[in-house]
């Protein structure tokens, strides 16, 4: 009990003071930073992407994103390694799903895949992108897992897709290096901002990321589903 009290007091001190300082230095609703100013005013011209967040994520900080994808990949590998079993994991769901869930999942599964694909294909135009789209796709597979106790993904196919999309991302970066002199250079024309085919390589990268993230998250879920508790 005394432990909880102490921790609450310490927390109160730390958090309050930190946020007091924060609201002094960065008041809510204040103007953008210097570097963002450039992104906002030049972003569309420089990258051709209507969605400025995408412009930042894939163009200005594209290398960062490659690292991020790598982190996710390493995490998926780590999950696989931590939950490794000698024989292929067999799912052991105790409860069958109800008829509503089963029928609903059959109806919704293609829609969810389509929605996920829509999100990452339009990553440079509308809110969302590869990571979000990938997450939606993975959710579709979660649905599948819930509704069917014997369902299991095609591991080989997923691994191939994931590797291929990762290689597309890295390959585009190296193409930029070869053609223009630096990694992840936008080697395709920018086009008209706001159209589907615009913003150079950004849509391609986001599609690759979407497939990769979807495959990886699904792989993580598959691993965890196969665990005997």
């Amino acid at each position: 009990m005394i432990k909880r009290l102490v921790s609450i007091i310490i927390l109160a001190v730390v958090i309050t003071s930190l946020f007091m300082v924060l609201s002094e230095t960065a008041p809510f609703g204040d103007d953008e930073t210097v570097v963002s100013h450039r992104y906002i005013y030049k972003g569309v011209d420089e990258t051709g992407s209507a969605n400025l967040v995408t412009a930042v994520v894939l163009n200005y900080r594209g290398f960062d994103t490659l690292g991020e994808v790598t982190v996710l990949f390493v995490a998926a590998t780590g999950v696989g390694a931590a939950l490794y079993t000698r024989k292929h994991p067999v799912r052991k769901n105790k409860v069958e799903a109800s008829l509503i869930v089963k029928t609903g999942s059959k109806l919704l599964f293609p829609m969810m895949l389509l929605f996920g694909a829509y999100i990452f294909v339009h990553g440079h135009l509308t809110p969302g992108g590869g990571f979000q789209g990938g997450a939606v796709i993975a959710t579709a597979f979660v649905f599948k897992y819930i509704s069917d106790t014997r369902y299991s993904i095609d591991h080989v196919g997923f691994t191939k897709m994931e590797s291929a999309s990762g290689m597309i991302f890295a390959g585009l970066g190296i193409m930029g290096l070869l053609l223009g002199g630096y990694f992840l250079l936008n080697i395709l024309p920018n086009g008209t901002p706001g159209e589907l085919i615009s913003a150079g390589i950004l849509p391609i990268i986001y599609i690759a990321i979407g497939i990769k993230v979807g495959a990886e998250l699904t792989g993580i879920i598959d691993r965890m589903m196969g665990v005997e508790a």
């Binding site: 953008e32 930073t33 963002s36 906002i40 400025l52 967040v53 412009a55 930042v56 991020e68």
Partner: peptide, 11 residues
Amino acid sequence: VDPLPQALVLT
């Protein structure tokens, strides 16, 4: 609004 924090949050 500022896109930079949003990109960072995405990461």
